[in-house]
């Protein structure tokens, strides 16, 4: 009985994993291949009329794998986004891109499974720790691997890059202006940000990425990135998985984009403090207070603002033992 159940779970898991790439591949096959050249043509036409961006620096926040849609990020992330906005008053901070869909289509939008996700969203609003919320994490985690896979990455990343680009343009970004763009990716959003870099950089946009506890692969976007800053907690095992699961990050991976970027000094790894990935004492925790009197939420917010401004990061000071 138990083995049958385990077998059934495995079959369902494998099937779910198998259909994971079909959304972005189907998008490319049905509309993306037409849509992308149209976008490029429209951008080229638009660019002729625009001289400079409305802001000196653009920051795009890409949510973690718990996000249901661009307009429905997990509540715990909202104070950090607001904090970053306050800390960077002259920057344009964008947070309405859903990184786990090539069409920026939230899980509760027009999809065959929308009802399920509505139900999960309601359950999560009642109880943020509800177990059904893990379904969202699982679904989006699969998209993270789609993004990192060299076979599917190009179609997936061209879709998300297009969404980021459209969000930038909606907010007054002028192509050709070389206005810097920083993508902030929390958790899985870190990898999605890296994936989008390749195509965004193709449009002559100088792109940097700040990963907050991100599970990062040796994405080829690293070859075109200005700089990657990986902020992580010492008690966060999930961010460590990136270095374990993705062979291109292994120490012997000579010639991988990660190794090349490391050698070129385009990757900074900054240890923020004893943060966990989630549950308690995590990056968004307003209740855990560091020895310097700042909450972990404040430490994360300050670190992001410092990196964007090119200033030294104030990490959690180590308590004298």
């Amino acid at each position: 009985m138990i083995w049958s159940l385990v077998g059934l779970v495995l079959v369902v898991l494998f099937l779910v994993l198998t259909v994971g790439p079909l959304e972005s591949l189907g998008w490319w096959s049905h509309q993306g291949a037409d849509e992308v050249p149209r976008t490029v043509a429209a951008l080229l036409a638009q660019q002729r009329d625009t001289v400079s961006s409305t802001h000196a620096h653009y920051v795009v926040y890409l949510s973690g794998i718990g996000a249901i849609g661009g307009d429905s990020v997990p509540p715990e992330e909202l104070p950090l986004i607001e904090g970053v906005r306050e800390a960077l008053p002259n920057h344009c901070v964008i947070s309405d891109v859903f990184p786990y869909s090539v069409e920026n289509r939230g899980l509760t939008a027009q999809r065959p499974t929308a009802r399920v996700w509505h139900w999960v969203e309601k359950a999560r609003l009642k109880d943020p720790e509800a177990a059904v919320g893990m379904l969202v994490n699982a679904r989006n985690a699969i998209q993270l691997f789609v993004c990192a896979d060299r076979r599917y990455g190009p179609t997936y990343n061209i879709g998300t890059a297009q969404q980021v680009l459209e969000a930038l343009l909606r907010n007054g970004y002028a192509l050709g202006s070389k206005t810097p763009v920083t993508l902030i990716g929390w958790s899985g959003g870190g990898q999605i940000a890296l994936g989008a870099v390749w195509f965004l950089a193709s449009a002559s946009i100088p792109v940097s990425v700040i990963s907050l506890g991100g599970m990062l692969s040796d994405d080829i976007g690293l070859d075109r990135i200005e700089h990657l800053t990986h902020l992580y907690g010492t008690k966060d095992p999930l961010q460590r998985l990136g270095a374990i699961l993705f062979a291109g990050r292994w120490p012997g991976a000579v010639g991988s984009p990660w190794t090349r970027a490391m050698k070129a000094g385009r990757i900074s790894m900054i240890q923020l403090g004893p943060m966990q990935h989630n549950v308690t004492a995590h990056y968004f925790d307003p209740d855990t207070i560091a020895p310097d009197g700042r909450s972990y939420l404040q430490v994360s917010t300050d670190a992001i603002a410092a990196v964007v401004n090119g200033e030294p990061v104030a990490v959690v000071p180590v308590e004298p033992s």
Binding site: A33, V36, P37, V40, L43, L44, Q47, R48, V51, R150, R151, Y152, G153, P154, T155, I158, L175, G176, W198, F199, S202, A203, S204, I220
Partner: peptide, 22 residues
Amino acid sequence: TAHDLLAGQQFMPVEFDFTLPE
């Protein structure tokens, strides 16, 4: 192939030539 997509061959010119008029 996926490589062609990365090179932008499907939607040239993906290596945008954003020539500023000024």
